[in-house]
Simulated assay, not measured.
Amino acid sequence: MMGVEKLAALRNLIAELDRALIAYSGGIDSTLVAKVAQDVLGDRAVAVTAVSPSLFPADLEDARIQAAAIGIRHELIETHELENPNYATNPVNRCYFCKSELHDRLRELAQAWGYDYVLDGVNADDLQDYRPGIAAAKERGVRSPLAEVGISKLEVRAIAKSLGLPWWNKPAQPCLSSRFPYGEEITLAKLQRVGHAEYYLRKQGWELCRVRSHGDTARIEVPQEQIADFVTMTDLEKLVNHFQSLGFTYVTLDLEGFRSGKLNAGIGRDPERGCRD
Rank of each mutant, 00 (worst) to 15 (best):
V51G: 05
N241D: 11
H103Q: 11
H196I: 06
M233S: 12
D125L: 13
R19H: 08
R140H: 04
V4G: 09
F230P: 01
E108Y: 14
C275S: 14
P57E: 11
Y117H: 13
E155H: 08
K35S: 14
F56S: 15
A34K: 02
I220R: 01
F97Y: 15
L154N: 12
V156T: 13
G247C: 11
E272I: 01
D129I: 03
G114H: 03
Q226M: 12
F258H: 10
D277H: 10
I70T: 03
A189E: 15
P91D: 12
P132W: 09
A20R: 01
E148M: 07
Q38M: 07
T252G: 06
G247L: 15
L154R: 15
G3V: 15
S152K: 15
S178E: 02
M1Y: 11
A8L: 10
V36E: 03
I77K: 09
S177W: 01
D29N: 10
D277G: 10
L119Y: 03
K6C: 10
T249W: 12
D104M: 15
L239E: 05
R273I: 15
D277L: 14
D270A: 06
Y87F: 14
A265G: 09
P166W: 04
D120P: 12
L7G: 08
K238H: 09
M1T: 12
G274W: 10
G215M: 01
R19A: 05
M2Y: 14
A15V: 03
K238D: 13
C175I: 07
L17H: 02
P271R: 11
